[in-house]
């Protein structure tokens, strides 16, 4: 079983103050702390569990700057043989289709059985890279996967649907699955693994190494344009209704009828 797991380094915005930067199209990330995208952490664990149970090989893939190495090596510390980091300022990371194209180019160079991504990234929340990646690779996919069972040349997964439904899907390999959080309990990387991870292969590639042309994956070649990023104003225009309870009820009812609510 040869597995690829796509991991992204994202800011932890749960506690931080988020401010839009001067370009108006990005946030000021200078004071953020960064880590692995939450869902990707579960994908890493799922791959390691599969490898522990059935053997195989895991390769991590990441598009990102040098700072991502800590996140990549942390995954290597939990299991996995090698990693590829794609660093190229020409890649437009705002367009999930283009991100998928870059990832696919890196995966296609090798034989593969199973590709895992997180179901969603915590920063951009497109929920589309995994699915688009399957399309680029020309293989089947299942999104929002909550459990994985490896069969002979096939894979059986449970998917989480809206409204508490679960869907069971069987697909032939190779395939792409996007992992939902909660599928497992991600382990902590042991110190020994962290030490060994420093010696594992981590290749850094550029567009040329992947045989990609700039216009395929750059902003100029994207059909999506980020217009503006802003924090919505929290408006409050509450009107206090005065009077006796009966008067208040009447005023309220009139307002509701006028407003089309009743």
């Amino acid at each position: 079983m040869k597995m690829f797991v796509c991991i992204k380094r994202v800011p932890d915005t749960s506690e931080a103050d988020v401010k839009i930067d001067q370009t108006g199209k990005s946030v000021d990330s200078s004071r953020f702390s960064f880590g692995i995208n939450d869902a990707d952490n579960y994908a890493v664990e799922e791959a390691v569990l599969i490898k522990e149970a059935r053997g195989g090989e895991i390769k991590f893939l990441c598009i990102g700057p040098k700072d991502s190495d800590v996140v990549i090596r942390m995954s290597l510390a939990k299991g996995g043989e090698s990693a590829v980091r794609i660093e190229d300022p020409r890649i437009n990371q705002k367009d999930p289709l283009q991100v998928a194209k870059v990832l696919a180019a890196a995966i296609k160079r090798e034989q593969f059985d199973l590709v895992m991504t997180g179901c969603m990234s915590a920063d951009d929340s497109n929920m589309s890279v995994g699915v688009a990646l399957a399309e680029e690779l020309g293989v089947s996919h299942a999104a929002m996967v909550k459990s994985v069972e490896i069969l002979d040349g096939k894979i059986k997964v449970k998917r989480e649907l809206e409204g508490g439904l679960t869907e069971v899907v069987e697909m032939s390999l190779p395939a792409v699955i996007t992992i939902q959080t909660g599928i497992n309990v991600p382990r902590y990387a042991p110190v020994r693994g962290i030490r060994e991870a420093q010696k594992k292969e981590l290749k850094v590639l550029k567009l040329e190494d992947l045989g990609l042309a700039e216009e395929e994956v750059s902003e100029a070649g994207s059909r999506v344009e980020l217009m503006k990023l802003y924090i919505p104003v929290v408006a409050s225009n509450a009107e206090m209704i005065q009077g006796t309870p009966d008067e208040k009820a009447e005023i309220m009812a009139v307002k509701m009828v006028k407003g089309g609510l009743l």
């Binding site: 190495d69 800590v70 090596r73 942390m74 510390a77 902590y188 990387a189 110190v191 962290i194 030490r195």
Partner: peptide, 10 residues
């Protein structure tokens, strides 16, 4: 260094 950052993060 990266190893120290990883130990700290873990």
């Amino acid at each position: 260094n990266e190893e120290q950052q990883m130990i700290q993060n873990m």
